[in-house]
């Protein structure tokens, strides 16, 4: 456990000792605001809730999270520091978890910094703060899902651009799998059970459930098992080809 914390601390400090952290946080906040107020028509809706804000999170994460996760392992491979790291007395699992946690905490920090939204909506009206809390929880879980996929893909290459593009493509599939655009394509020729399975893999539908203010254990299990699955593949990929 101590080892994981040490790795997480180092990684997290790494974000803030380069401009990466600040650029990311500023862009994230700007885009979140832009989506909420212009595309989500926050004021025009005339409702005291944050759904105009949270509805855009899957799409925001789709592009911004791979930008964080792409460097997690690809950079270690490119710089050769993976050799330094893997010859220290740590297990592959500890490093994978440590790095993932750092990235997750970092996105958590960016997410917490959206608190002016919450203040705004409480100032303007009388929102259901319980719903807002479960929405934040859902958003954090969803960010973890995107990150774990990105981390796994980053471990397959030493090229960060490839990691970025492929992560977006895979995350896109997970994002849209519950939307009509995908389901309509399958609905004419696949049985309902399979259709439901495809839909249940969707980030959007699992996240939307949580933004309704209901903490359904199934949604939480979905995201956690996705994270565990992706990180397990991550460990396998590091173990199978450390030196290349």
């Amino acid at each position: 456990m101590g080892t994981i914390i040490n790795i997480t601390k180092r990684e997290l400090n790494g974000y803030f000792s380069t401009p990466v952290a600040y650029v990311f946080i500023v862009i994230f906040l700007l885009m979140a605001g832009l989506f909420t107020f212009y595309m989500g028509a926050f004021y025009e809706r005339g409702q005291a809730d944050l759904s105009a804000f949270f509805d855009w999170h899957p799409w925001l994460y789709l592009f911004l999270i791979p930008a964080i996760s792409m460097r997690l392992w690809a950079e270690e491979r490119r710089n050769g520091t993976i050799e330094l790291l893997m010859t220290l007395p740590v297990s592959v699992g500890q490093t994978v978890i440590g790095k993932f946690l750092a990235a997750w905490i970092f996105t958590g920090i960016a997410l917490i910094l959206t608190f002016p939204m919450w203040i705004t909506v409480n100032y303007l009206g009388d929102p259901d703060n319980g719903v807002i809390l479960t929405s934040y929880l859902g958003s954090l879980l969803m960010a973890g899902g995107y990150l774990s996929i990105g981390s796994c893909i980053s471990s397959l290459t030493k090229n960060q651009v490839i990691a970025f593009v492929v992560s977006i493509a895979v995350c896109f599939l997970f994002t849209v799998s519950g939307l009509p655009i995908v389901l309509n394509f399958f609905s004419s020729w696949t049985p309902q059970a399979l259709l439901d399975t495809i839909a249940s893999f969707s980030f959007v539908s699992n996240f939307t459930d949580l933004t309704r203010g209901v903490i359904d254990i199934r949604n939480i299990i979905y995201f956690l098992s996705l994270i565990i699955g992706a990180l397990s593949l991550n460990i396998l990929s590091i173990n199978s080809r450390k030196g290349i």
């Binding site: 400090n13 790494g14 380069t18 050769g80 520091t81 050799e83 330094l84 010859t87 007395p89 740590v90």
Partner: peptide, 18 residues
């Protein structure tokens, strides 16, 4: 084993931002 070894890999890779 790793606890007992001190190792400088080829090219001495380091975390440059630290």
């Amino acid at each position: 084993v790793k606890e007992k070894i001190g190792y400088v890999p080829e090219g001495a890779p380091l975390y440059g931002e630290m």
